[in-house]
Design a binder for these strands. Structure first.
Ligand SMILES: [Mn+2]
Ligand SMILES: [Mn+2]
Ligand SMILES: [Zn+2]
Ligand SMILES: [Zn+2]
Lengths: 129, 129
DNA sequence: AGCGTAATGATAACCATTATCATTATTATG
DNA sequence: CATAATAATGATAATGGTTATCATTACGCT
């Protein structure tokens, strides 16, 4: 990315101003709703460009990729299969153990993604009721 | 699944006879190459049906779903981004810590997927050379 | 101002997966 | 056994997220 265009700045601002995990379509809709003019292809390219610079982070879910602010410490995700709510967590021991496992297998670790699935408190209660 | 048809039995046998992580297309091709007659739609349906019965397991990767034998103990995966090699591992402490984290957040945990990315020994050496 | 190049946006293409639907196979029933 | 009910198959269309194409526009620089 050589140019931080107005479109890319708008994407970055939108994501940085929230704690959500956005998919490309949500970003496009939010920007258009806010009066911006941006095509969906530009959103996809902008998200990829911003991520490659480390300005935003992403998680790859089963159906789609979701983007979030990069100015938070590394964390993993717990997703409610009932309502879609995403809870963040981090656990230093889990991180260290992963490095140990990689070392044992002679893997040069470059990244990881831990996603836990389940029901949030509300959805679990609703189900029990 | 009410009927374990010859097609579904063939899918199950193929997967059970290997340690690979198969995608739908690979399963279809392998069966056709082995002389079976099976359509790709039937493979997709068969894989889903077998999984829902717990007869096979799956991991959801970024681009596609991959299936494997279910008669192994639970494990997670480390994937080489160089050659695609998939290494399996399991770590009891990581499993327990996940349950603790879920309990703290009042999540009713139903599953998880931990994928580590990196370079296997061979690919790392190749890169250094 | 003019040139070189990166980015945009509409749209086509791609790819994995699911839906449709007529046909076939299997199971249940008389 | 014959036949009805229904589940599964397979060819193919459709879907949905994402990437590629390409003409046009915007930007940075001299
Ligand atoms: Mn997050
Ligand atoms: Mn495995
Ligand atoms: Zn929920
Ligand atoms: Zn490798």
């Amino acid at each position: 990315m050589q140019r931080l265009t107005v479109q890319r700045q708008a994407i970055l601002d939108l994501i940085n101003a929230s704690n959500r995990h956005w998919d490309a379509d949500e970003v496009a809709r939010a920007l258009v709703d806010a009066g911006a003019s941006i095509g969906i292809a530009t959103v996809y390219r902008g998200l990829a460009a911003l991520e490659s610079l480390g300005l935003i982070d992403s998680i790859q879910l089963a159906d789609k990729k979701r983007y979030e602010r990069a100015d938070k410490a590394h964390h993993d995700h717990m997703i409610c299969t009932g309502c879609g709510h995403i809870e963040e967590f981090s656990h230093e021991t889990i991180e260290v153990l992963q490095q140990q496992i990689a070392a044992e297998k002679a893997f040069r670790l470059t990244g990881h993604q831990l996603v836990m699935f389940g029901l949030c408190r509300d959805c679990a209660e609703e189900l029990d009721r």
